[in-house]
Structure formats: C-alpha cells, structure tokens
C-alpha cells in the first residue's frame, strides 16, 4: 500500500462512510453503535483489497459487503426480534400519536431482513432493480417480487395509519 493509496482510502472513507452508516442502520434496523461496527467491518474488507479495487468502484464493493453482513446479523436476531415486535408496545394501544412515519418504519423493521434490504436499496438509495440485484447477489426477478411484497405490507400499514 503506497502513501497515495492510504490517502485515497482516507478520502474514500471520508466521502462515503456516512452514507454507508445510514444504509446499515436502515438495513439491519440496528442501533448506531451496531451499524458502525458493521460499516467498519465492510470497510476493513475494502481496505484489505484497496490497491486492487480502488479504481474499480470501491463503493459498490463496500455496499455489497455491508448489506450482506447487515442481513446476516439481522437474521441472527430474527426470532427474538419477531417476539418483541409481535408484542404491542407497553401501554400504547393503537396510539394515535404514532405518526405515519413511525408506523412505516415499524413495519419496515418487521420485514424479513432481505426484503427490507431490497426496499432500502430501491427506494432510499434509488438503485435500479439490476443494481439492487447485484448488491444482494440475487436475480432481478427476486428483487421485483421482494420489493412488491414488501411494499404491499407497508402499504397495508399506511392505510391503517391514515385511518387511525
């Protein structure tokens, strides 16, 4: 690794780490602390191969590493998550204060991790279906069906939110 490589890595991290951190938070539904750990892990992999990949879209590489480890981590917590989400929040029964945004995010967190990742990449990062498929290492058809099912669930919740 030359000094120039090191400097370019600093620049890359400075420019992209906030965006990666935000993606991590949305995909794994994690705390900022957890998400930082995930981003560091992904960037460590980038750093390891930096001289080779720095001229070849390192951001895509980082995002792929990040999203996949975020999905893995979210999956590991799946069962316990489902339980805590299945329980109504203490004392708040259909609270009308629960804004639409919170309701949507709540629904987003309940989705299976991979489906959630599809929605984040498609509608928050504005990636195309093909780009999303490349990040997740799945087919475009899977992205389409996961996005459609995820949106349907969120839409359902949105209707409830409007009626509440």
């Amino acid at each position: 690794m030359t000094n120039e490589d090191e400097a370019a890595f600093d620049e890359f991290v400075g420019a992209r780490s906030t965006a990666l951190l935000r993606t991590a938070i949305l995909v794994c539904g994690a705390s900022t602390h957890d998400a930082e750990d995930l981003v560091q892990g992904a960037l460590e992999r980038v750093y390891r191969h930096w001289p080779r990949i720095r001229h070849d879209n390192p951001e895509a590489y980082a995002r792929r590493a990040l999203v996949n480890s975020a999905i893995t981590r979210a999956r590991r917590r799946r069962v316990i998550r489902e339980i805590s989400f299945a329980r109504p929040p203490e004392g708040a029964v259909d609270s009308p204060d629960l804004g639409l945004r919170d309701a949507l995010l709540d629904e987003l967190r309940r989705l299976p991790p991979r489906m959630r990742a599809v929605l984040v990449l498609r509608y928050w990062e504005d990636l195309s279906e093909a780009e999303t498929a490349a990040v997740l290492g799945c087919s475009v058809g899977t992205v389409k069906s996961q996005a459609a099912r995820g949106l349907a669930r969120v839409r359902e919740r949105m209707k409830e939110g409007v009626h509440a």
């Binding site: 780490s17 935000r22 938070i25 960037l43 987003l108 949105m158």
Partner: peptide
C-alpha cells in the same frame, strides 16, 4: 407508498453522521 417510505427512511437517518475517525478505526481493526 414509495415516497412515504423514502421520506420515513430519510427522516430516520437524517441526523446520523459517521465519526471522522472512521478510516483510522478501520486500520486499527485491520
């Protein structure tokens, strides 16, 4: 629904900033 979702996601992570020491932490970790 796509816009509503985007709006909610943007709001959720709006204030999140990566710490300036991120690159250093990555090296240390490596």
């Amino acid at each position: 629904v796509e816009e509503a979702l985007k709006d909610a996601m943007t709001a959720q992570v709006h204030g999140v900033q990566a710490p300036p020491s991120m690159a250093q932490q990555v090296r240390r970790r490596r």
